[in-house]
């Protein structure tokens, strides 16, 4: 019994570690898509976030002796750079009415190329940043973390995980309980009506995209600052797309997205367990990797509940157009 409980506890713990980045990024996608801008650049934004956090953390630590504070500075620097990078997407797809998907593809390319280019310049030709000495360490919540099994599973985690779950609540409140959230959603559903009501459609969409930049970059940063402790070309490999899948699987709702992110996190956390017990004979690892993508297609095909996208997502808005 003890054995099973400790496995379950490990599983929950790892699920939270894996899900954290996905929650950040899918919340990012949520703000952008709810405002009517498709954001398949989540992947690129995560790359930018992971890169920025790793580089800033490294230099704050080694040049200024930032110590335990350096990952925090790296984390927030990532958010800022993420916002700046996402402005390109907003500029192209809101101001210049570009195809939002193409613009997103371009940003993914740009992020992948530019970050490795910069890493090679900054670290004198090396393909990855130096290993970070100071990264986030797990935080135990007093008393709660002493609960047998559950304490280790849920209440001993990286600070970023707590922030991610907190942000889910914040996102829910902001989107559904504030005038700002109503405006943001109305711009994504029916921009012309929103415009008539005096809402600045362009401004709201810029805000949506910028929020997505900050959040997705924070998601990328959590991977660099908790899991890999450095940045290389494959630090982010598909998590941005899984986050997009989580957003859709979660039906463009913060709680849904969180649930989907946790579910995809379980799939990832199961992986080492499956290998440990030699279950790969029955469930090939590759199928576990595939799961998030297959589920997303099934959901969209209406086989596992119907997901309805914001009505005007993907459509550029032109003031005065009919």
């Amino acid at each position: 019994m003890d054995f099973i409980f400790s496995i379950l506890s490990d599983l929950m713990h790892n699920t939270i570690v894996f899900s954290t980045a996905l929650i950040f990024a899918s919340l990012g996608g949520l703000f952008s898509e709810r405002s009517g801008v498709v954001n398949i650049a989540l992947e690129g934004l995560m790359v930018v976030g992971a890169f920025t956090s790793a580089v800033v953390t490294y230099f704050v630590d080694t040049s200024f002796g930032g110590g335990a504070l350096s990952p925090w500075i790296g984390f927030f620097a990532a958010a800022i750079v993420g916002v700046l990078f996402s402005l390109l997407h907003a500029l192209a797809s809101v101001t210049f009415k570009a195809d939002q998907v193409v613009s997103g593809v371009a940003l993914n390319f740009l992020a992948a190329g530019a970050t490795v280019y910069l890493v090679k310049i900054i670290f004198h030709g090396a393909g990855q940043t130096k290993t970070l000495q100071n990264v986030f360490t797990k935080l135990s919540i007093p008393y709660l973390s002493d609960i047998p099994y559950l304490g280790k599973a849920l209440f001993t985690a990286y600070p970023t995980s707590y922030i991610a779950f907190l942000l889910v609540g914040v996102a829910y409140y902001v989107l559904f309980k504030t005038p700002f959230g109503l405006q943001l959603r109305s711009v994504g559903e029916h921009p012309r009506a929103a415009d008539t009501m005096g809402i600045n459609v362009y401004k709201m969409r810029y805000i949506g995209v910028m929020l997505s930049g900050a959040l997705a970059a924070m998601g990328g940063a959590t991977i660099a600052l908790t899991t890999t402790s450095n940045f290389s070309h494959n630090t982010i490999s598909g998590q941005g797309f899984i986050a997009l899948a989580a957003l859709i699987f979660g039906k463009w709702h913060p709680l849904g997205a969180m649930g989907a992110a946790l579910f995809f996190g379980v799939a990832q956390a199961l992986n080492p367990l499956v290998q440990l017990f030699g279950l790969t004979k029955y469930i090939p690892v590759d199928f576990i990797y595939m799961l998030p993508y297959i589920l997303t297609i099934l959901v969209l095909a209406g086989l596992v509940g119907k997901a309805i996208a914001p009505k005007s997502v993907g459509k550029p808005y032109e003031t005065g157009s009919r």
Partner: peptide, 25 residues
Amino acid sequence: VPIEVIRVVIASVIFFVAASGIVTY
């Protein structure tokens, strides 16, 4: 020059085609 600069070039070409409004501007 690190070879990744070519990815940057290709990305910006896509970006400028997508946002052809920038080019016509």
